[in-house]
Amino acid sequence: MTAIADFAAALLLAPLLPGVINRVKAFFAGRRGQSVFQLYYDLRKLLAKGAVYSSASGFVFRLGPVASLAALLAALAVMPAGGHGSLASFDGDIILFAYLLALSRFVTVLAALDTGSSFEGMGASREVFFSALAEPAFFLSLAVLAKKAGAFSFNLIFLSANPVTGTPLLLVLAALFIVFLAENCRIPFDDPNTHLELTMIHEVMVLDHSGPDFALISYGAALKMWLLGAVVVRLALPFGGGTGGAQSPALFLAGIFALAIATGIVESCMARLRLLKVPALLLSASMLAFAAFMVS
């Protein structure tokens, strides 16, 4: 029951995260900024619109947003993205989680290629490049968690009586935070606010989506942020050891919005990396996770 409540809360609250980030960035820029509910307004507006499809595109383009969101929803089912356990839990759900995110990316990339636009092809190419480097970092981090907790299921890892602490925790958190930024296309990997197609990664892949399709994509992006943010938050905050530990939804919410604020601060203080430098940062995430594995 609590798991269903968490699931619903994630569905409802996920669009707040981009809002919070934008608000923080506005604050740093000395503006008042848009409402934190802006994405909700956008979604309502987009869902009420018609659609324009590129004449070059076909069913793969139409499948993209739909399958991508479906994969993310399934991923939400195995991620304890709230104060409690997850809806479904079994040995190896961490693997399924990572590959569901990969599925979501796969269909998005294909939808981008279906438009035949060279810019979207470029974005697609960068997306698969960076995610291929982020994947090992994510899996190495998972290996650290599994090793310490003695289990490879999110529920058991996050409710373990033997959580990751000390130096390894710091290292893994750093690695996962980098993966979080990379996978969600935030600065320093990708600038969601840029207006130059040449410099975009994620945004350029969805240039041709419109109306309800774009609503599904924007919502999916927010959900993905919630999902990967949940990994960081559940790990960073003391949710108590053992199954009887403190399972506080309030703590989780505080954590995830703190993460959004942190992301906003990072975005305000940093510039986007040169594309050639991005791989080095992703490799260092792998290195951090590797070091954590060695010392844990």
């Binding site: 602490t165 000390g166 130096t167 710091l170 290292l171 080095a280 490799l283 260092s284 290195m287 951090l288 070091a291 010392v295």
Partner: peptide, 21 residues
């Protein structure tokens, strides 16, 4: 938290930074 371990990890990370800089 073991601070010496943290220091050791900082030493390690500095090596990485050094090689990749």
């Amino acid at each position: 938290m073991n601070y010496f371990e943290l220091l050791a990890v900082i030493v390690i990370l500095c090596d990485v930074a050094l090689c990749a800089a």
